[in-house]
Design a protein around this nucleic acid. Structure first.
Lengths: 170, 170
DNA sequence: AATTTACAGTTCGTTTTTAGAACTGTAAAG
DNA sequence: CTTTACAGTTCTAAAAACGAACTGTAAATT
């Protein structure tokens, strides 16, 4: 698979992975949500090489996730801030953090707590159905091809061994 | 930054990225949620090199995301199925797909629709606050250090230019 | 009986990415 | 007049991914 073609795959997941699906990009975006805006800020917070950081920022700008806006003339300096498209990544970030909070914390507990301004409480993010409001789990969801599907997108036959009944569990 | 140390970072996001934060792993997990279970199934669906696939599957098993269970003796064959820890990645997957559905579809529309068994409707995933049930957005959330935080985790000073007031926007 | 196919990997040489450090350039501060 | 802050770019070495071929068991086919 060519990574530069990932964005044309008939799969919203593949396309999104083409944009944010690597370690550094995800960490850069974490910093964005923590209000980091400038080159040096990202670099010192993450320890990423300057070369890669420059490249990743360029890519995120190209893809409309970040906007590069000048904050100073001569020497020209710019800040990187999240566009709406970038801000919309928030649920992904929260889902990632929440999984880590659930499955990857040590005995000392969570590194970071999240407080909801509206209700004032520390919360966990919960994913619910837009139609009925019930929490979602993998088993309750059925997928089927939409208008943008190609013949057989990524959904292969469910691996049935063709009923050839080779000697199983001999 | 050493990637093998990512899981010990005092940040749930960094730790999670250590587990699922690369392109192939994310795509392998997509296949898992689409019910792929076997080596050849992953390989042909994704076009990943067999070498990398073997390595990624091993890693996911080691991390408790997949379980490797025999389905046949001599030659020994195994299936890879999601553990509960793996199933809990579902909100991350859905959040990624939903962002793609929102920002990366072409004129033909979504490649895949999701139907909620409970209510029978096609839905979008919505992330809400566990305490008040309201939808979440980045601006309404305030983060602060939790019990597992280190001195200054990932939260750097918010980039104030030290009030040195260099000639700005000359 | 000999050959092909299915399956789940492993091995190895080549190409691409990433790491790490140094360098460029403007301008303010000491 | 030298140092510092900032935002990059350039270069070489190391690590990771690619691609193709190879290993091994056993059933199915010829």
């Amino acid at each position: 698979m060519r990574w530069d073609a990932l964005e044309e795959e008939p799969c919203s997941m593949a396309r999104t992975i083409g944009v944010i699906g690597d370690r550094w990009t995800l960490l850069i975006l974490r910093e964005c949500f923590l209000r980091t805006r400038r080159f040096e800020g990202f670099q010192s917070a993450l320890g990423i090489t300057r070369h890669l950081l420059a490249e990743r920022l360029k890519k995120l700008v190209r893809q409309g996730v970040l906007r590069r806006i000048p904050y100073q003339e001569s020497p020209k300096r710019h800040e990187y801030i999240l566009t709406q498209k970038g801000l919309d990544l928030y649920p992904i970030m929260m889902a990632i953090v929440h999984w880590g909070d659930t499955h990857m914390v040590d005995e000392r507990g969570r590194p970071l707590l999240h407080q909801h301004r509206k209700c004032g409480k520390n919360f966990d993010p919960v994913m619910v159905c837009s139609e009925c409001g019930e929490p979602l789990s993998a088993k309750e969801v059925h997928t089927h091809p939409g208008p943008g599907a190609r013949s057989t997108p990524a959904i292969k036959a469910p691996e049935k061994p063709k009923a050839k009944a080779r000697r199983s569990a001999a």
